[in-house]
Nucleic acid binder design. Structure first.
Lengths: 227, 227
DNA sequence: GGATGTGAATGCATTCACAGCA
DNA sequence: TGCTGTGAATGCATTCACATCC
């Protein structure tokens, strides 16, 4: 049993490898080299090999990696080899869009419930899910095995909702509210602030006036900007 | 005139500082120390000071930073001190949600047009913006000063659309399509794949079985997971 | 005293380069 | 020959610690 810290950037890239492998498989490829994988994602071959090496040996020297087998292994590592139940808290514009988003299920995530405090949205269905009043949160979570939640409430409500989710047994929160959540002990938080992403882009464009252009990928933050 | 490379992680944090400063101002604070700022965002005081130091001197020893002045300076650095025009390409669930999103304008981003190829959505209005056919992309962009675009097309259409945007003079793309875009020379790309974010979370939760819990913030990727 | 700004030191991720295997 | 897996070297970001200033 290994017990070493996996670099967070490496974990981020695992998802990208999986995404790419699924596309390769769709295109009929059965095998792929670290170089090919790297080029498709604008990374280096050594980095791909290092990232995968954290989890053991996958490839065949001289041949490369088996597309299907590596994808299966990555899903297992990411915990998406079985369907993962998710709830959405906050059924505003973004929350409703996510409820109707088709891509999640294909990747192993199933939205099983949605909650809101607004009496006008409660009771309506989006993507086949009926929005429940937030007061039903605890009882609904108690009845199902839900480890992840997507948080799309207004900023003011985010921290307290996060607390409730943690107490109800949720282990991870994907936070879209524009606040730095304080996560109670066993809870993991990943935050995505859409405005922050736009600001990053604005900075890059803005700074191009002096320095050269820079292809900065949020999922793959490699290079730096110049001022 | 400085000409040094700004670390990409530092740029990411500038947005978070700005967000926090705006909240502080809303709460009536006029001054703030690097320590207070750091604690609110779960960072270290030294890091806050280092990040800001890239752009000159802001604070007063013994007092801290002027909330209003620092916020204004950060907006200027990020390029959001004037309104930034943005177009949305792809009016599916996510695209429509972003069109109706209120938060962008408050942060300096104004959506001025939206495009789609689906005849059923074209002509409809969301958030006050009428969706145009994609064929109007070039003419509409020629008529207005638009430097940023939000890309919410299906994966298959993303690369070609990205190309068209670049040729039409757009300088930055916020990409939500699950593909690694190849950005033509002067174009900057920031990618956000919602499924990838969920997978990150799944991994953290999944790996908690062996290692201790880990509060990993996507906007602030600091620590590592353990296996 | 209290806080900033910054060189020096640390720690971490990426890249290199090569041994080993198909 | 082609490609993986990996220790060693590099490069970069974070943290430390302190001189400096209000």
């Amino acid at each position: 049993m290994r017990s070493q810290p996996i670099p967070a950037p490496a974990v981020r890239r695992l998802s990208l490898y999986l995404r790419q492998l699924e596309q390769l498989r769709h295109g009929g490829r059965t095998t792929v080299s670290s170089r090919a994988l790297a080029e498709a994602l604008h990374l280096t071959a050594a980095q791909v090999r290092k990232d995968l090496a954290w989890f053991g040996q996958f490839g065949q020297p001289g041949k490369g990696y088996d597309v299907e087998a590596l994808a299966a292994r990555l899903r297992r590592i990411l915990g998406t080899d079985r369907t993962v139940n998710v709830v959405v808290v906050g059924a505003g514009n973004l929350g409703r869009a996510l409820l109707q988003h088709k891509g999640f299920l294909r990747k192993g995530f199933r939205i099983v419930a949605a909650f809101d405090t607004d009496g006008r949205t409660v009771g309506q269905a989006f993507g086949g899910i009926i929005v429940q009043p937030l007061s039903h949160l605890e009882s609904t979570l108690a009845a199902q095995d839900v480890r992840l939640a997507i948080l799309t409430t207004p900023a003011e409500a985010a921290q307290s909702t996060c607390q409730r989710l943690a107490e109800a047994g949720v282990r991870g929160v994907l936070n879209f509210a524009p606040v730095a959540l304080a996560a109670p002990a066993p809870l993991a938080v990943v935050s995505v602030d859409l405005t922050v992403q736009l600001e990053q882009l604005s900075f890059l464009v803005h700074s191009q006036t002096d320095g050269p252009a820079d292809d900065l990928d949020a999922e793959n933050p490699s290079r730096s900007a110049r001022v």
